[in-house]
Amino acid sequence: MPETSSTAAVPPLPPLAAQAERLIELGVHELAGIPADELRAFAANAGGEDSDALLAVHPDRVPASALAPLLRREDKPGFVVIDMPDVDSFAPVGIELPEAPLYLVTGLDRGDHMANWSPEEALPALTKEERTPLVLSEGIHWVLQQPAVLERNRCFMTIGSRLRKANGTLDARTPAIWISNGTGRDGRERRNAPKVGWCWWGNRHTWLGFGSATGRKH
């Protein structure tokens, strides 16, 4: 395995009630077809002010392509890279999401200690630790609720989402969320903006850890 980096402190999530209000403020509930009061009630019943968990909307209700532009960093909106037009076709693989429009993701970790690992190396290590990799929509929800989780040189992949080809094999791309340098096809105007992109399954990147959780519940 490659050398690992130390894990930096990741800011805690807001209380669930505040997370619900954040999603309502962004209009996520409308995109998902969920009444605002239903979202507030779920947050209250799921733990209210005391739960340190992420409130997520099922990706079947709101796809990554709709969530990414809601991200903000330095007043710049998030975006999906131009060569990932099939972003919404990336679906959970080896992961059972709750069969509910709203659910909680517990025990979030950015995976800084796995920076410079490849997805191929990281997945069995996460499995051994009894952790589950985040799917892309969960990673975006995390950054929506706590933008500070995305830092220069400390961003993360969401390898719970994969694209299955027509022949049944998995596409070699794996989704990730990081900060644009404003180079190439991103465009200079997008420098420092949150970016949903992809990396190869077998490649390592020093600035990317692996977002994971201890579990999901609804």
Rank of each mutant, 00 (worst) to 15 (best):
I95N: 07
E3Y: 12
R22T: 11
K165P: 07
E138P: 01
A115T: 10
T127Q: 15
V87K: 07
G168V: 11
P12R: 10
D60R: 14
M1R: 13
S212A: 09
T169G: 12
M114E: 11
P2Y: 04
P14T: 04
D171I: 01
T106W: 09
E120Y: 10
S212V: 00
G215K: 02
L13D: 05
G209K: 09
T127K: 15
D88I: 12
A46N: 07
A213Q: 08
Y103P: 04
R191K: 14
L13K: 00
P92Q: 03
I95L: 12
D112N: 07
K76S: 01
P119Y: 04
A41G: 09
A66P: 01
M1V: 15
T127V: 13
R162M: 13
S51P: 03
R154I: 09
D186P: 05
H29F: 05
R72S: 12
D75S: 14
A9V: 15
L67R: 09
S5Q: 15
L97T: 05
R152G: 13
G197N: 01
K76W: 01
G107D: 07
L108G: 03
C155V: 10
N181W: 12
I95P: 04
S180M: 09
V81P: 00
G33F: 02
A8Q: 14
H205I: 10
A36Y: 02
E99H: 10
K217P: 00
F42K: 08
D60V: 12
R110E: 09
G211R: 03
A172E: 15
P63L: 04
T214G: 10
D50P: 06
R152H: 13
S212F: 04
V62T: 02
H113F: 10
F79N: 02
E96P: 00
A36L: 05
G78Q: 09
E138K: 00
L55C: 05
A100F: 07
L31H: 08
R152S: 13
D37V: 12
V93I: 12
A68F: 04
S118E: 06
S137Q: 13
E3P: 10
V80Q: 02
G160W: 01
G168T: 03
D37H: 14
F156N: 00
P133N: 06
I179K: 08
L13E: 06
G184R: 03
I140N: 03
D186M: 10
L67A: 06
L97R: 00
A176L: 09
M84C: 11
V62Q: 03
L39R: 07
L71D: 02
V93H: 12
T174F: 10
R22Y: 02
V62S: 00
V10H: 10
E138L: 05
A41L: 15
P133W: 10
W201C: 03
K165Y: 06
N116G: 05
W142Q: 01
